[in-house]
């Protein structure tokens, strides 16, 4: 564990807490893509199957349990508790275009041809694009509540922090994980547009609005 990874994980944790806080306090999941949230549940469940047979550390264990349970809880909030505030008509990204290619990529690129390792690869590929329905929705509506943008910024920062972590691990442990690194770079790149508007508008106290 190095500081970059710790900052990354903490920022991931923060993003989820911000999202839950937004839904609870505004009593609404307006502006949040259900599809993206459902993809995250898929990501965590398919990646953290090793909870059942592999022990890494107490930290690792609790984080995995937290990510699975909190992402399921968010789906519950969106589909049950605050269902009327969820508008599927603007959440129109076709996720089969993400699931299919990620499944094929996972069958081609993996470290071992076993069910859990292929699912692990699948989860890494899927995570890198899981934010697309959310960004697509943002693009469509052209605006977002400030708290939603803080959520997205924390989520983007999470994978961004993992990049220096991988460079650091390469130097100190001589470890490279090509699947995670490639997908991580793609994932971070998807946020660049968002970050530009976030830094130039939201952090200057303005509303998040995309140019028409």
């Amino acid at each position: 564990m190095n500081l970059f990874r710790l900052f990354g994980d903490m920022s991931h944790l923060a993003s989820i807490l911000i999202l839950v806080h937004k839904i609870q306090t505004t009593r609404s999941c307006r502006g949040i893509s259900f599809k993206t949230q459902a993809l995250y549940v898929t990501v965590f469940v398919s990646r953290y199957l090793d909870l059942f047979y592999d022990w890494v550390s107490l930290y690792n264990f609790f984080m995995k349990v937290f990510f699975i349970s909190s992402s399921c809880y968010i789906l519950y909030l969106m589909k049950m508790k605050f269902r009327p505030t969820n508008d599927p008509s603007i959440d129109t990204f076709r996720i089969e275009y993400l699931l299919g290619p990620c499944a094929i990529l996972a069958l081609i690129f993996h470290y071992k041809f076993t069910v859990t390792e292929v699912l692990w690869s699948f989860s890494i590929f899927l995570e890198s694009v899981a934010i697309l329905p959310q960004l697509f929705m943002l693009q469509r509506t052209g605006e977002a509540e400030t708290i939603t943008t803080h959520y997205l910024a924390a989520l983007g920062a999470y994978r961004a922090f993992y990049i220096p972590n991988w460079i650091y691990r390469y130097w100190t442990e001589d470890i490279v994980d090509p699947i995670a690194v490639t997908s991580g770079i793609v994932q971070t790149a998807l946020y660049l547009d968002f970050f530009y508007v976030y830094f130039t508008k939201v952090l200057q106290g303005q509303k998040f609005e995309l140019p028409a």
Binding site: N60, F67, Y111, A180
Partner: peptide, 10 residues
Amino acid sequence: DGPYEHHDEL
């Protein structure tokens, strides 16, 4: 075992 026999990152 290779370094990614298990995955320690989240």
